[in-house]
């Protein structure tokens, strides 16, 4: 079997146009996920009554659910129920007005918030107890200590883990082809379906995702060097 380079280039040119959409979906779900993830991490870390235990189980359950299923289930739930819920709320919008892309963003944001919550929880635990105590000892409240002392130290610690999550979620966008969102993989397969040259399509999609991963890794590496500097050598 031969690899049709010329055809691969043709697929590439079609698939590459979906890079902005893929990155847009990945970026917005990561942003939403990071905010919720931080929130969950804090509730669990400070063992806020009720919430702490709730999110412990919440995270356990959804960490153990494969991404494909979470995305499919979210999609089906929204498709079946969106119009009737919107109607009962007195809204005149329908499923068609919202667009599938946002369902993808929602599902991936959900998945990334679980992952981020674990990354941030680990990072919070990595800040030594003495830092919390020193902040309290100078009269700071828990929130002041968190903003001025703890998070500036914890967030740099979470950068390598966050990089993993960012790459995972970006690759996860490819699963959204299942629910008909036309991202890089979907676009490649579409181009190939005419001539059944799927090998080329998959390889091209893989190469593009690979390129994106490298770029993301470089960005996080830069962030790590930039923000890690202030607290470096603290363990020595």
């Amino acid at each position: 079997m031969s690899f049709d380079l010329e055809f691969a280039l043709e697929v590439f040119l079609k698939a590459i146009t979906k890079v902005p959409l893929t990155l847009g979906v990945a970026f917005s779900s990561l942003l939403i996920g990071a905010v919720f993830g931080l929130f969950i991490a804090l509730l669990r870390f400070y063992k806020v009554p009720g919430f702490g235990l709730f999110f412990r189980w919440f995270v356990t359950v959804f960490k153990g659910t494969p991404m494909v299923m979470l995305i499919s289930i979210t999609y089906l739930l929204v498709v079946y129920n969106f119009d009737s819920v919107a109607q009962s709320l007195g809204l005149s919008i329908t499923f068609k007005d919202v667009g599938k892309t946002w369902i993808g963003v929602g599902a991936l944001a959900f998945i990334s918030s679980i992952a981020f919550s674990e990354a941030f929880r680990g990072a919070l635990a990595a800040v030594s107890k003495c830092q919390y105590e020193a902040a309290y000892s100078v009269g700071e409240t828990r929130i002041q200590a968190l903003i001025h002392v703890i998070l500036p130290q914890a967030l740099p610690v979470s950068i390598p883990m966050s990089c993993n999550i960012a790459i995972g979620i970006t690759k996860g966008v490819s699963i959204l082809y299942l629910v008909g969102i036309i991202e890089i993989l979907y676009a490649s397969l579409q181009a190939a379906s005419r001539t059944y040259q799927f090998l080329e399509a998959y390889v091209v999609a893989a190469l593009i995702y690979w390129g994106l991963s490298i770029i993301i890794e470089q960005l996080f590496g830069f962030a790590e060097r930039r923000f890690g500097r202030k607290v470096r050598d603290i363990t020595a």
Binding site: C130, Q131, E133, A134, A135, S137, H148, V149, P152, Q153, K230, V231, I234
Partner: peptide, 10 residues
């Protein structure tokens, strides 16, 4: 503090 407890980010 015994272990100084300086804010490491400052």
């Amino acid at each position: 503090f015994q272990t100084y407890g300086l804010f490491l980010n400052k």
